[in-house]
């Protein structure tokens, strides 16, 4: 299991545009990807409703995880989206 831990920097948190971009990017990858807030329960990163339900705010830490070929690459991109201001 590969994972990335990042702090969310966007003013709106992982909602609105950042959430949509995050989910759309995750959905394109042929891997199972999860996201968790802090040490909370991981949810499907391809599900906008699950990601919104985490209620990630600016300054929160999220852990994004995936396993398999290309995990590093997709996790880097998702980490960049999640931490963009």
């Amino acid at each position: 299991m590969t994972q990335r831990q990042v702090t969310v920097e966007a003013e709106v948190g992982l909602h609105a545009r950042p959430a949509a971009t995050f989910v759309q990017t995750a959905a394109k990858a042929p891997l199972d990807i999860t996201i968790a807030k802090g040490s909370g329960k991981p949810v499907n990163a391809k599900s906008i409703l699950s990601v919104l339900s985490l209620d990630v705010r600016k300054g929160d830490i999220v852990v994004i995880a995936a396993e398999g070929d290309g995990a590093d690459e997709i996790l880097d991109r998702l980490a960049e989206i999640a931490s963009a201001p």
Binding site: Q24, V43, N44, S47, I48, L49
Partner: peptide, 16 residues
Amino acid sequence: REILNAQALMARDPGL
């Protein structure tokens, strides 16, 4: 467009 696309994402949600 952004708002409507976000709603479309909800309709396409795999968990749902």
